[in-house]
Design a binder for these strands. Structure first.
Lengths: 396, 396
DNA sequence: CTGAAAGCGCTAACAC
DNA sequence: GTGTTAGCGCTTTCAG
């Protein structure tokens, strides 16, 4: 393997990547460089003739404005940094896909950063060097120090799917507490008495809100969590944790329901329950997830889960970002998107005649599409959110 | 030092995002701007003292070199464009994750483009404006016209997981033909006689190579494809196609095996087979996929499939890119990565005593990780690839 | 090894 | 409307 060792830069400029410049166009069109700039600037005032000449010259030369140069002079890159960590969890690819498309259709570009570890700070600093116009954090928390730095740099940031402890940054998240609470009610109302919880990363706001929601919801039915283990939002760990949670102890103590902090972990839990533990789902134990990723609808799992309304979340995110960008201000808003319980087959269904939430029963129905997708909503469980799809709480 | 007598910044410049410039640092350190530039340029020659003073001044001011300005003057952005289309298919999130990390650790940044439709051309042009140093296409084909344009702009491109018709662009792909051929052999050797094929997008090289491989492999066993349908690499379409393929016709004509062009479609096929059609997998019909995405190992599917060696593919991709970037040349290489058959439970296993390929049977084994991953390779099926993990065929 | 000066390609006042 | 003229922040000759 050889290394680059020579700063061999000739007087001759290296054959430039995009050699044709606005200057070239200006000369061909016999106008000033400004005229060229203006015809390529949406709001500018150019006479139709000038524009025409410029366009033609540009076409002839195959001219494309250099976005980097423009960035240098306008300080606007039209690039948004998107930071994510866990693409294994299907929730995030879906998010990235929609977010990118939305941003693209608004004329922005996505600079993607994947980060496992907590080196997010270093990464963000690196990222700031690219003059991104905004940042969407869908991974880690920002250290408050860095959040500060970024705020000073006046770069809009929105935390996606986590609420910042500091509270000084805009956030978009689901009603995690309400969703989990609805699960608690649903499980209690369908006759479950020993509800276990398989937690996500302990330091994440999503996990603590979901756990809190479960606890509160159960309490409202006179119950409490029967068992708890941590799967750290990780597939293997979730499988392991499930195994441990269900092996020790008497059979009579065995949880009759398991609420899992993410679908991704729920699949691992179900596999373990059915495979290593030889239990039936939902006959022996009901499983409920969170997210409603595409796989939740797969025939072999038919996972009852809490849907995060990705579209609304993305819309809110983009809206918040654009609003800040357009007005050149940094605001701190918090949007909470309503969730809904999607009832499929992985949790025991309400008994006919019971006073539980109504649900269209589709036990093993394998047809997909509308039929299966039209799962029951559970608004009756007393969630706190109003009828509006998204609730906005602006501060400042 | 006082400020120089420059006509101090004109009217209201918007409060800059990263106000501290190399000039500020230079003044504080009482050196020239060049000195600052040099201390932040890896190969440059600066005396230790100068460097030290600069570093300290930089630290004091919180200086971070502006990557955009640097790009403008060096014409090197250290950004790589990555173009993908289908994040639903788990294969791509995995690719993106590894690719991004690799690129990041080599000091590059990823500009991500998601594109459904065939507007790839327009997109690419747009993308070129950002002066990306290279492009990884993991979605559509490039129109030959555009490929030409890009080549002229001297931007290295590598097509990931597709071979370009034009042949004028570097490509990295799996041995799709060999993998599919191995499947044909495996199915024939485990007693299947009516093998159906569920195709991916008709215009994709992956699909045609896989189909060809299946046909060739079956022919070598005196068989031919018994039925064929198109799922277009799409989940719903695959479910639909499976339904159609298995409903009409006599039961005796029903395929006893289904080779699916991607795991993603295979899950849909299995769901349909089991659900709507009430068939057992693999007792009534064996299913084999392609890709070996994480979900293939899930307990409810245990999909026998052809593994694409993502790591090797990514390594090759990054290597090809870097090599071109470092030497400032555009080459046209083709790397083909070997595949292997991963035997799980979705296809009937070889009968003990049969002369088929050996396979460690792990029918319902729920433990994951090494145990399950150490599935059987099928080198005995006469694949064309050598023992090396990746085969390189350089042209030009 | 160091500094001065001239750009990289584009935009943004400021006259005209 | 249009051209002129300064830069945006950094790198890179070219002298010293």
């Amino acid at each position: 393997m050889m290394k680059t060792s020579k700063p061999a830069r000739r007087p001759t400029m290296p054959p430039s990547k995009n050699s044709v410049t606005s200057n070239d166009v200006a000369r061909l069109a016999e106008v000033s460089q400004s005229a060229v700039s203006r015809t390529f600037t949406p709001g500018a005032s150019v006479s139709p003739e000038t524009r025409e000449r410029v366009m033609e010259a540009a076409r002839k030369l195959g001219y494309r404005p250099n976005a980097i140069a423009r960035t240098l002079s306008t300080r606007l890159s039209r690039m948004i940094a998107v930071v994510v960590s866990d693409l294994q969890n299907q929730f995030y690819p879906v998010v990235i896909e929609r977010l990118s498309k939305q941003l693209q259709s608004n004329g922005y570009h996505v600079l993607l950063f994947i980060t496992d570890t907590e080196d997010a700070d270093e990464l963000l600093v690196e990222l700031m060097r690219y003059q991104v116009d905004g940042i969407v954090m869908a991974s880690t928390q920002l250290s408050s120090g860095l959040a500060q730095q970024i705020a000073e740099a006046r770069v809009p940031v929105v935390m996606f799917n986590r609420v910042s402890r500091a509270g000084s940054i805009s956030t978009v998240s689901s009603d995690n507490h309400g969703g989990a609470r609805a699960v608690a009610h649903y499980l209690a109302d369908t006759g479950h008495r020993r509800v276990a919880y398989l937690a996500g990363a302990e330091d994440s706001s999503t996990n603590s809100d979901r756990e809190r929601g479960l606890i509160d919801g159960l309490a409202e039915r006179g119950l409490r969590i029967a068992a708890r283990a941590n799967g750290n939002y990780n597939f293997e760990r979730a499988a392991q944790a499930t195994l441990e949670m269900f092996t020790h102890g008497l059979e009579s103590d065995r949880p009759d329901a398991l609420f899992v902090a993410s679908d991704h972990m729920a699949f691992a839990a179900i596999d373990t329950l059915r495979g290593a533990l030889g239990l039936r789902v939902p006959e022996d134990v009901s499983v409920v997830g969170f997210d409603n990723v595409p796989q939740a609808d797969w025939g072999a799992y038919r996972l009852t889960t809490v849907e995060q309304d990705v579209d609304s979340m993305i819309d809110a995110t983009v809206r918040m970002l654009l609003q800040q960008l357009e007005n050149d201000v940094v605001t701190r808003d918090h949007v909470t998107v309503a969730t809904r319980l999607v009832v499929r087959g992985s949790a025991r269904l309400p008994q006919p005649g019971t006073d539980g939430p109504q649900a269209n029963r589709s036990p093993t129905k394998a047809s997909r599409g509308e039929g299966a997708a039209a799962s029951a909503t559970a608004p009756a469980t007393g969630d706190t959110q109003g009828p509006a799809p998204a609730r906005r709480k602006s501060s400042r």
